[in-house]
């Protein structure tokens, strides 16, 4: 009881305190969904209905500060948020370049971390596509796709009429990117005044938020296994020092999780 109270209470508190009350969408057949601009507006407003906006804000303060401390320019930090649009990739990029690794090593590490965007885009698009949708209508959505948008599409889109989903996700993506952009600039400007402890706390936020949001979204045993095995195998793979450690541990752990899933499926069928 107490647990439920504190957990729910915390989230409600943060939602009201920092992000306004949760958005409740109009019914699917409402006139409020009439026109793309309105749907865009609902998407924009939905940004304030997710705790992940707060996480995003703090994460990108960290990224802005990290970019400043590694002597990149403000424009560099802004462009990395708008054009890369993937928190972990940006952290890996800045920290590898900052620690003196070559551009090639850094590009490989970022490419490895970005592979996850492929299945995310593949999974998000069927939720958005309608019978008349052309591929070029989905380019911006593919660009906006990252872990936060991916998670929130599953939550919000069932409440959005299908023909308005493109506009809605454009609004949601714009809102999330706006939050991250403002945070990047604030973090960059504040960096000189941030204490080391605060900087460390901000950087720890990314692994915590990623771990828990992926775990909450894990619906099947294969997902949980892939996550757990991936966490355990990476430190072992890192001992190889191959330059592609994340790929080695990722493919290994993912394939193992998939094999266990298939094995269980077959056993249940038999």
């Amino acid at each position: 009881m107490l647990q439920r109270l504190t957990a729910g209470g915390f989230e409600r508190l943060i939602a009201v305190r920092f992000a306004g009350p949760p958005v409740t969408f109009p019914p699917l057949d409402s006139l409020q969904w009439h026109g793309s601009l309105r749907a865009f507006g609902w998407g924009l407003r939905a940004t304030s209905a997710t705790i992940l906006s707060v996480v995003l804000f703090v994460t990108f303060i960290g990224i802005g500060a990290l970019a400043h401390d590694t002597h990149f320019s403000m424009l560099w930090a802004i462009l990395s948020t708008v054009l890369v649009w993937a928190g972990p990739a940006q952290i890996i990029l800045v920290s590898t370049l900052g620690s003196g690794q070559t551009i090639l090593q850094s590009a490989i590490a970022v490419t490895m971390s970005a592979i996850r965007l492929f299945p995310m885009v593949v999974a998000v698009l069927p939720l958005i596509r309608g019978p008349k949708t052309r591929r070029r209508h989905l380019v911006l959505i593919a660009h906006f796709t990252a872990v936060t948008l991916w998670v929130e599409c599953y939550r919000f889109l069932p409440h959005v009429p299908r023909e308005r989903r493109i506009a809605f996700v454009h609004g949601l993506g714009t809102g999330l990117m706006g939050v991250a952009l403002v945070a990047t600039i604030i973090g960059y400007l504040l960096a000189a005044n941030l204490s080391q402890t605060f900087g460390a706390a901000v950087l720890l936020l990314t692994p915590l938020a990623f771990l828990f949001s992926t775990l909450r979204n894990a619906k099947e045993l294969a997902d949980v296994l892939a996550l757990g095995l991936g966490l355990v195998l990476y430190p072992l793979a890192a001992r190889l020092n191959s330059g592609v450690d994340i790929l080695v541990s990722g493919v290994g752990a993912g394939t193992l999780a998939f094999a266990v899933h298939k094995w269980r499926e077959r056993r249940e069928a038999a």
Binding site: I91, S99, P119, G230, G250, V251
Partner: peptide, 29 residues
């Protein structure tokens, strides 16, 4: 797609582990 998803999740786990095991910036302190 199932396999690609499992690999993607495991790669994300690797990214999480990397930040904790080989921390960037101030986290290294």
């Amino acid at each position: 797609l199932m396999w690609v998803k499992a690999v993607a999740t495991a790669i994300l786990a690797g990214v999480i582990a990397q930040i904790v095991v080989q921390p960037p910036g101030a986290l290294a302190s």
